[in-house]
Every structure is written in C-alpha cells, then in structure tokens.
C-alpha cells in the first residue's frame, strides 16, 4: 500500500479521533469506573477494597428498595405514556388538524418554553404554584373557595406533581420530532385518501400513525432511558420525600453516593438502573419490531 493510499484511508480515523477520545474520556472510562466502584466499598475515606457482589447483595437486602422500585416504575410508566401521548396529540393537532401553519408553529413554540427553561427556574415555578403555605398559588385558589387549611401538595401528591411537570417539560421534544415526521408525509397521500372518502380519524390512524412508528420508537426508547436516569427535578422539588414516596432508583443512588458518601453502594445502584434501562429498551425494540423497521428497503436505487 503506498503512502498516498494510506493517507487517504487514515482520513476518516483522523477526523473521528477527537470524538473517539472524548467518548473514551467522558463515557467509556466513567462507565468502567462506575462498574469498578460498584464492586468496591469506596466511601468518604476514598479507600476502595474489592468486595465483589457485596453491594448488590446489600441492595437486595435494603428495606427501601422495593418501595423505591415501585415508585420508579410508576414514575417511568406514567411519565412515558403521558409524554408520548401528549407529544403525539400536540404534533397531530398543530401539524395536521390546525390548517393555519403559522398558528400551529406558534403553538409549538409556546410548548417549547418549559423545555428551554433552566431546570432550577422550572422547579422554583412549580414550588411556587404548590407552595404548602397559604401564600402558595394553588392554596390561594382552594382557600378562596372555602378550604380553611392550606394543602401540603408535595407531601400529599408529590409524585403526581413530578410526573405532570415532567410531561409538560418533556412533551415538546417528541412534539417537534413527530411534527417533522408528519410534515414529511407527501400532501398527495392525504389528497388520495380524501378522494377515497377517508375522514380525519382514519387518516390519522392509517396514514399518520404508521408513518410515525420509527419516531415513536425513538422517543419511547430515549425517554425510557432518560426517565430511569433522571432525578434532578425530584431532588430539587421533594428531595425524594416524604420518606421515599418520590425517591426513584437513580435518586437513591445519588443520595447514597453524594449525601451518605458511600460511592461504592451508589455506583452499584446506578448499575442496576442501567441494567433495568437496557432490559426495557430491548423489550421496547421487540415491541416495536425493531428488526423489521431497520430491514433494508426493497426499492433499488
């Protein structure tokens, strides 16, 4: 192989190298370090002794794990279903049902606002609304209608508030993706369907939704992974309380590592989070018939 040919062959690798290094530094090494930590008793002393599966045994004996897994599954399931459904609804309404394109676009931009807000500001907004004192927005309303004592919203319905806040903030990403996909359906397809007498309902069911299968799968899978790993909003809003009523697995891992300074145990919990996410992702791939989706097109170039 001559030098010129070698140089030519090396270009792609040269261009990929910086990103490969970044991936190695910020993804692969931390992931491996987490796996290593999970097998140690690393704590505030920063001395790690290898304890094998000791942390995992401890997880299964932890009296909080079952309630926390229950909270996590409720949180992920409802957040996921509502986020995807809401995104779809918004996309179909603004991209297909509302015929005025500018109005639809404006509506989508408005829905983007929550997701563009810094997380902290977003939490403050919700904490103001559901402030447990008589000065809270929601309490002002209920007390105006005669309730004598203010409601401790985050204590009584913390998980529900967290799910609603997450859905409102998270729906915009899916909405944009679904809107783009709906927009890519040729107008002729709609016209042909209407000529055949199709109503809006059957157009949505038989044309739009099948065309959205791939984006729906993408949003579902990425949201599932994201929801399992997310804890920021919960940490700032309720710190996982009362007791463990709003503690998800990811938050519990964070608390063990950074509040109790038990890095090994926290890492083991985060490994469990990753394993559950992976299993669910595989399940979703199967559910969406991923193999069929990525089959090569039959149309020849």
């Amino acid at each position: 192989m001559n030098l010129a040919r070698l140089k030519k062959k090396s270009y792609p690798y040269l261009f990929l190298a910086p990103f490969a290094i970044l991936t190695l530094m910020f993804f692969v090494i931390p992931a491996l370090a987490t796996l290593w930590m999970a097998a140690t008793n690393l704590d505030r002393k920063m001395k790690a002794d290898f304890i094998g599966f000791g942390n995992f045994q401890r997880i299964f004996a932890d009296i909080n794990i079952l309630p926390i897994i229950k909270v996590t599954l409720i949180y992920v399931f409802f957040s996921l279903v509502l986020t995807v459904a809401f995104s779809l609804l918004l996309a179909i309404c603004t991209q297909y049902l509302v015929k005025n394109k500018k109005l639809g676009a404006l509506y989508r931009v408005i829905w983007l606002i929550p997701s563009t807000m810094p997380g902290l500001v977003y939490v403050v907004f919700w904490k103001y609304i559901f402030n447990p004192t008589p000065g809270g927005f929601a309490n002002k309303i209920v007390m105006y209608f005669g309730l004598e004592q203010p409601i401790s919203w985050f204590n009584d319905a913390g998980l529900l508030i967290i799910i609603i806040a997450g859905v409102i903030s998270g729906a915009s990403g899916g909405m944009i993706l679904f809107s783009a996909s709906i927009n890519s359906i040729p107008e002729d397809v709609y016209k042909a369907a209407r000529v055949d007498g199709a109503k809006d309902r059957s157009i949505i069911r038989d044309i739009i939704l099948p065309a959205l299968k791939w984006p729906i799968m993408y949003v579902t899978v990425t949201s599932t992974i994201g929801l399992f790993a997310s804890y920021n909003f919960i940490l700032l809003a309720t710190r996982g309380g009362p007791v463990v009523d709003t503690t998800t697995l990811a938050l519990y891992g964070y608390q063990q590592a950074f509040n109790r300074l038990e890095y090994g145990y926290g890492a083991a919990i985060s490994v469990i989070v990753v394993i559950i996410s992976l299993l669910l992702t595989l399940l979703l791939f199967r559910l969406f018939d991923f193999n069929k989706l990525i089959r090569p097109p039959r149309i020849e170039d």
Partner: peptide, 9 residues
C-alpha cells in the same frame, strides 16, 4: 424519615 412517615403518611 420516621418522623416524616408519622407526620405525613
């Protein structure tokens, strides 16, 4: 945590 359980739950 015990106190929270008592007060809230």
């Amino acid at each position: 945590k015990g106190l929270e359980a008592l007060m809230v739950k």
